[in-house]
């Protein structure tokens, strides 16, 4: 059974017919070709698939494509504006917040939301905020550092975004 959906992804509107059981992450990756969003698990533990839906962070592996009908979705591909990296992306680059890069999209998307909610988090607050995201490479040290640097950059207005 296919269901029609209409949604905006990274500012672009899409009308699609999707199987009712299709996961949002598969719709984004397979139907729209937005493969920047990753799949790291099948138990909603790892956070590699995090996207923003109407501003909230959502694990796109736990959400059906049909549930995103009418929604405004932002993925990692939609974060940089006019060729300028988002401050969180920039901070990940500056602070070696990634190694293999597989968790990175989910980490960055999670942190963008975290910083909107709490623009000046402590290191502990960042760590608590990353409870749903697993990174196997970095030991989290530089991810936390990147998040704090991004908070600083955003609050001082540096780095655009």
């Amino acid at each position: 059974m296919k269901v029609p959906i209409k949604l905006t992804v990274n500012g672009k509107s899409h009308e699609s017919e999707v199987p009712a059981r299709q996961l949002l992450v598969h719709y984004l990756r397979d139907d729209l070709g937005l493969t920047g969003t990753k799949i790291g698990c099948d138990t909603s533990q790892c956070g590699a698939c995090v996207v923003r839906i109407n501003g909230s962070t959502v694990k796109s592996c736990t959400c059906l494509a049909v549930q995103a009908d009418g929604a405004d979705v932002v993925t990692i591909e939609g974060l940089a504006q006019d060729g300028n990296l988002h401050p969180v992306q920039e901070a990940f680059w500056d602070n070696h917040g990634l190694q293999c890069g597989y968790c990175t999209a989910g980490m960055i998307m999670t942190i963008t939301e975290l910083l909107e909610r709490n623009p000046n988090p402590s290191a502990d607050e960042v760590r608590a905020g990353l409870e749903g995201n697993i990174c196997r490479c970095t030991g989290y040290h530089n991810i936390v550092k990147a998040a704090l640097a991004a908070a600083e950059a955003i609050s001082t207005g540096a780095g655009g975004g």
Partner: peptide
Amino acid sequence: SGIRRREDPRLITGQASYTDDIK
């Protein structure tokens, strides 16, 4: 020198291709 990595731009923007990303 601890220069930032040249592999990062593709990884932080979602433009890198891992095996499962290939069609």
